[in-house]
Design a protein around this nucleic acid. Structure first.
Length: 426
RNA sequence: GUGGCCGUAGCUCAAUGGUAGAGUCCCGGAUUGUGAUUCCGGUUGUUGUGGGUUCGAGUCCCAUCGGUCACCCCA
């Protein structure tokens, strides 16, 4: 065993028993995104490292220590496995001039990579669905994205997911606030712990998150960002809140919600579940009006969210409403002279007619084949033995209900099979 | 990156420092070619790995790897 290769730490196999739930989750989410007017886009998993450094910000945890980056010596390029989707999506929009004829709503899904220590709900490879709206400056799209999520949770059979909301203003407003905040914190540096002191110069907004009581005391009297917001920022926030209220979507204001990526401005939000342990954020997003320009494109407003599939699937699993895997309509048992050929053709024809059919492979006695038929969950067992081959017939046995068994002719097999299946299932 | 807990059969777990077990799963059988119940029988292992203490280690000690949860941060 020790010599056996294992999956990379924090990167998980999803086994067949769980795939039914994953696929049902994906089908619901994708249908919902399309229904809301978002169009699918797919970006590469690998991008130039510079894209993420510029988009996410040098001082963020992601860029500082969580990226899978390497130098591709073949082309002398610095590459990175994407830690999130927004940067790639904006890059693609700029590269292909997607918004030359007006704003666009887009969605994507797929794996993201962050080199963090794995724990419940946090993995090094994790799947996200993301939605991004490019070219809309007003709070209407912010509200749309948030309300969309509010409607999705019940569709997934989930409840108890709450919304936290904040506005972090414009870059200029934040800069002014930041200057004053740093000044204030420096004046009180003696009361800060080591962690807060470190963040003071790298990411002062994060000091507000400190859980140390003494730091909390200092933070309580720190200048509030809200006081630095101009009329436009406040109006945007008010507009958003109004639309959320009109939609009946409840939220709590969280002035400390700042998010870990530098590109956000104005609206930031998180959907949070308390049923997931320490990693409760199930969906997070916000506005990023400066990102297009920052990445070298024409200045264009943007807003979006990303939702964590592992976390949502975990909630669905806990809810106990996981969909059952599709069971085969029939399992074909065969033995004796000429039976394999008949069984093989039979399975092939039924599959072409749209039925889910498993053909016994690997031999085995009638008994063991019947056991496998039962274990497969199939509605019917189709039995092809020497008698049937001679008579030009097939035995059909109902496995789930009565256990009745009868013979059908090979000529009318497809019609009779379909009729039997329908009758048994009814 | 730091810390707590845990590594025994495919899975879930037992085993006062003294011969490694149970349930489940899987396979075979209970008179001819019939499942799910029942009965009988059978295979499961370098006890994560490497050292050390001991007459003797699954058990105690050290290291290492892995898992898990938490911190940090976030999806």
């Amino acid at each position: 065993m020790s010599a056996a290769l294992q999956a990379i730490r924090g990167m998980n196999d999803v086994l067949p028993d769980d795939m039914a739930l994953w696929r049902s989750f994906g089908a619901i989410v994708e249908a919902w995104l399309e229904r809301c007017g978002y169009r699918a886009i797919r970006m590469p998993l690998v991008e130039n490292t510079a894209l993420f450094r510029r988009a996410i910000g040098e001082a963020t945890d992601i860029v500082e220590k969580e990226m899978y980056s390497w130098r591709d010596e073949l082309n002398a390029e610095e590459l990175t496995l994407r830690p999130e989707g927004t940067a790639s999506c904006v890059r693609a929009a700029i590269e292909h001039s997607l918004i030359y004829d007006g704003p666009k709503r887009l969605w994507y899904g797929g794996p993201m990579y962050r080199h963090e220590r794995p724990q419940k709900g946090r993995y090094r490879e994790f799947y996200q669905y993301g939605a991004e709206a490019f070219g809309y400056a007003g709070p209407d799209v912010d509200a749309e994205l948030i309300v969309m999520c509010a409607r999705l949770w019940p569709e997934l059979g989930l409840q108890g997911i709450r919304l936290e909301l904040n506005t972090i203003g414009s870059a200029e407003e934040r800069a002014r606030h930041r200057t004053d905040l740093v000044k204030y914190l420096e004046a009180n540096e003696a009361k800060l712990d080591a962690d807060a002191k470190r963040r003071l110069h790298t990411n002062p907004l994060r000091v507000l998150d400190s859980k140390t009581p003494m730091v909390q005391e200092v933070v309580a009297k720190a200048p509030l960002l809200m006081a630095y917001l101009g009329a436009d920022s406040l109006a945007h926030f008010e507009g958003l809140k109004k639309l959320l209220s009109a939609a009946g979507v409840e939220f709590t204001l969280n002035a400390r919600l700042v998010r870990g990526l530098d590109y956000y401005n104005l609206t930031v939000f998180e959907w949070i579940s308390d049923a997931l342990g320490a990693q409760g954020t199930v969906c997070g997003g916000g506005r990023y009006d400066g990102l297009f320009a920052q990445l070298g494109g024409k200045s264009t407003p943007g807003v979006g969210f990303a939702m964590g599939c592992e976390r949502l699937v975990a909630l669905m699993k806990d809810s106990g409403k996981a969909p059952a895997a599709r069971k085969p309509d029939a399992y074909v048992v065969h033995q004796g002279e000429g039976a394999l050929e008949v069984a093989f053709t039979l399975a092939d024809a039924l599959r072409s007619a749209g039925h889910a059919v498993v053909l016994n492979a690997g031999g085995g006695s009638f008994k063991s084949q019947m056991k496998k038929a039962d274990a497969s969950g199939a509605t019917l067992a189709l039995i092809v033995g020497e008698d049937e081959v001679r008579a030009g017939e097939i035995s059909v046995k109902a496995l789930r209900s009565t256990g009745e068994q009868r013979r059908i002719g090979r000529q009318s097999m497809i019609e009779e099979f379909a009729a039997t299946l329908q009758r048994i299932k009814a």
